[in-house]
């Protein structure tokens, strides 16, 4: 149970960062932390104690294994997060070129 609570704390750290930080790069990192927390959730749900990794290996066919599906899901979601981060970094660079600052409170031409 304690691992789930710690995982939730990690999620909250990310959420806190998104809500309170003013630096674009820190916001991007916080979104990343939230994503890692969600991935960790998936992996924790799949974990069984005394189990083997879910890949067929010669001589170990009959062992009990952890659930492979969440690991596949996490791989997919890591790929998606890689894309998100790359896109957000590109946008942050463009925003710096235009506004000469990384401070989100100074980047507000749109409001109302």
């Amino acid at each position: 149970m304690i691992v789930y609570i710690l995982c939730f704390v990690l999620f909250l750290v990310g959420l806190y960062g998104v809500l309170t930080k003013r630096d674009l790069v820190k916001i991007i990192l916080s979104v990343g932390i939230m994503g890692y927390a969600a991935n960790l959730f998936l992996i924790l749900f799949a974990y069984k104690s005394d189990s083997f990794y879910p890949i067929l290996t010669e001589g170990k066919e009959n062992l009990s294994r952890v659930d492979p599906l969440p690991q596949a899901l996490v791989l997919t979601s890591i790929v998606i997060e890689l894309g998100t981060t790359a896109l957000l970094v590109a946008l942050a660079i463009k925003l710096y070129q235009k506004y000469k600052t990384f401070d989100i409170t100074k980047i507000r031409r749109l409001s109302g």
Binding site: V31, M34, T84, L87, L88, L91, K94, L95, K98, R108
Partner: peptide, 13 residues
């Protein structure tokens, strides 16, 4: 870019 960044952050969350 500003709108897209906001959208991307909200969308990711």
């Amino acid at each position: 870019f500003e709108a897209s960044f906001k959208y991307a952050i909200m969308g990711s969350v």
